[in-house]
Design a protein around this nucleic acid. Structure first.
Length: 479
DNA sequence: TACTACCGCCAC
DNA sequence: AAACGTGGCGGTAGTA
């Protein structure tokens, strides 16, 4: 378990602010020292060095326009993260141990079945060995290739499912192997013997967008999608007597930000109507009434909505939806003619970024993106997608950071016992005494929705339950 | 034993 | 020719 100081990587040179890639790293390594100084009183030597440099750092921050970010968001957040790290979260170790046995047995059974079907023994976890069996010995049709050989990723295997019984077994084994090794086996080993809980480390300045990162263990990628995934998530529980888990998440925060920043009238209208945004998008794109939107049309619209935030193109859309390039092109043409202001906005972000060599968010957070002028198409395209995504992802990151700081202040001021445990990009997780449920049900959505003013409004959904998997809806609050 | 590259995949 | 943004991590394979 860390001492609570958010981890910080080496910083860019002070004299070179234009290529400062990590927004809070406007200074040299002393800047990260300044950071640590605020959360960890043990770093006395560093602190003395920092105090001397502080005036220069402050001036530099004002020049870059990151002083608000630093003083009002990151600095106070640092303490919040320290509290969350030291609080930790309880996991049900006996429950996971039982799963370990069960999954181990299932994997062994699949392994012997595969040996039968393949007529040989090999390591299922080795893509290289698997590729040899599938594409050389069994002569299955080769799909995508990787840098070093044949691809055996899930998408590729999915196309081969009907071709040979081994494929389904491999996919099943993959899922078991991934979840067992990464979570079921690993998490119990990371329980702190003193607290009986797992204590993640939050990286406060380790992402390019201002999002947090989580490591040792990463508690931001706990499974949720599949049945088995939910069983793993169920191990995260409210352990203290009379306590429950409360979660609160922003709905569609990045898409709301896209509407807000672009001012796109159709996207704003869809949010204003309070409709399901993907259904509303489908209705607008297909030019049909809301009531006529079928599930497949909604699915297309949903993928396109997410894709627009990432700069996804025709090819990506066609791959993800399993449609032809022509259909994808036609659909995207309709999509962008529907949300033409969003299109204009994203183009303008790209143009400005190319001109400046960096992007700046609404809170003043900056990201250097040097490859926007690269003659290499691949590098340049990737850089453009970073530029497009940055304003939305980073503002979302700051909105929840602001909420966390304000929440923690109010929780302290009111002498409330409940604790903030985790942040997962658009979600906060708390462990609270049942007696305080009312407090949290009121406070959390009020502060989260009030953290920033968006033209779309902000919506927060709260849930409560005995663990992180079995939660029932408390409320949906819009403001 | 420790490090790196690579593949693959979990989350938002 | 490549094609969807931000992360962390487990496993294999090669190497130091």
């Amino acid at each position: 378990m860390g001492l609570g100081a958010a981890s910080l990587a080496p910083a860019a040179p002070l004299s070179d602010p234009a290529v400062d890639g990590y927004n809070m790293r406007v200074g040299t390594q002393t800047f990260s020292g300044l950071y640590k100084f605020t959360t960890n009183t043990l770093l006395v030597e560093t602190a003395e060095a920092i105090i001397n440099l502080r005036p220069r750092l402050e001036a530099e921050m004002r020049n870059l326009g990151v002083d608000y970010l630093f003083h009002e968001i990151e600095l106070p957040l640092s303490g919040v993260l320290a509290d969350m790290e030291s609080e930790g979260v309880a996991i049900d170790v006996p429950y996971l141990k039982e799963m370990q046995e069960e999954l181990g047995g299932q994997m062994a059974a699949i392994e012997s079945e595969v040996e039968q079907v393949a007529g040989q023994k090999f390591n299922l976890n080795a893509p290289q060995q698997l590729a040899k069996v599938l594409f050389e010995d069994l002569r299955l049709p080769v799909g995508r290739r990787t840098k070093t050989g044949y691809s055996t990723d899930a998408d590729t295997l999915e196309t081969l499912r009907e071709k040979h019984p081994i494929v389904g077994l491999i996919l099943e084994h993959r899922q078991l192997s991934k979840l067992k090794s990464t979570y079921v086996d690993a998490l119990p080993q990371l329980v702190d013997p003193l607290s009986g809980r797992v204590h993640t480390s939050f990286g406060q300045a380790s992402t390019a967008t201002g999002r947090l990162a989580s490591s040792n263990p990463n508690l931001m990628n706990i499974p949720i999608r599949t049945e088995l995934g939910q069983r793993i998530r169920r191990a995260f529980r409210a352990s203290r007597p009379g306590h429950v888990m409360v979660s609160a998440d922003y709905s569609q925060i990045e898409l709301r930000i896209a509407a807000h920043l672009s001012g796109d009238p159709k996207l704003l209208a869809a949010f204003a109507a309070g409709q399901d945004i993907h259904t509303a998008t489908a209705a607008a794109v297909f030019k049909i009434p809301i009531e006529s939107v079928d599930p497949n049309q909604r699915r297309l619209a949903k993928v396109a909505n997410f894709g627009s935030i990432y700069g996804q193109g025709e090819y990506g859309l066609s791959q993800q939806l399993g449609i032809t390039g022509d259909v994808a092109r036609e659909f995207l043409a309709q999509y962008w003619s529907t949300y033409s202001r969003l299109k204009d906005y994203l183009d303008e972000v790209k143009r400005k970024a190319r001109e400046d060599g960096f992007v700046v968010s609404a809170t003043g957070r900056r990201r250097a993106i040097p490859d926007l002028r690269s003659p290499n198409f691949q590098l340049r395209s990737a850089a453009e997608r970073m530029a497009i995504n940055f304003p939305m992802q980073s503002l979302a990151a700051d909105i929840i950071k602001i909420a966390m700081v304000r929440l923690q202040r109010e929780i302290e001021a009111d002498h409330i016992e409940g604790k903030m445990l985790l942040q997962v990009h658009d979600e906060l997780l708390f462990e609270v005494p049942e007696s305080e449920l009312g407090h949290f049900a009121e406070k959390v959505p009020r502060i989260m929705t009030g953290a920033y003013e968006l033209e779309t409004g902000i919506e927060v959904e709260t849930k409560v339950g005995p663990n992180w998997a079995d939660m029932k809806k408390l409320a949906v609050v819009r403001a």
